[in-house]
């Protein structure tokens, strides 16, 4: 957050905010943690995963973390728990379980 040009928080005053609500920081949607919308949670079974990355393709929130062409985990800060990734997995590598 500190690298933002304008740091918009719930306490930002009218003198600090941007004209017309203009968003001047590209990609600042990342600052908004949508992970707490989740009631169901995707879980990864590494042993069954073929790293086909179709889960990455279908994820609407860019919450599948990939490194060097391999699945490495979920971005639980932003995953809303829609379950699309678990539904499409053909290898049983993704389970969908209730949040505790």
């Amino acid at each position: 957050m500190s690298n933002r040009k304008v740091n918009i928080t719930p306490d930002t005053t009218w003198k600090e905010t941007t004209p017309g609500g203009v968003i001047v920081d590209a990609g600042n949607a990342e600052d908004f943690k949508t992970g707490d919308w989740r009631s169901m949670r995707p879980v990864w079974h590494e042993d069954k995963c073929k790293h086909c990355l179709l889960c990455w393709v279908v994820c609407p929130d860019n919450s599948i973390k990939v490194e060097n062409g391999k699945f490495v985990g979920f971005d639980y800060d932003h995953c809303k728990g829609c379950g699309v990734c678990t539904k499409q997995c053909k290898f049983g590598a993704l389970d969908f379980v209730p949040e505790e």
Partner: peptide, 14 residues
């Protein structure tokens, strides 16, 4: 970005 959705927490300030 211009013309975003603006909810009660910011609309008034804008």
């Amino acid at each position: 970005s211009m013309g975003p959705l603006d909810l009660p927490n910011h609309y008034f300030e804008h």
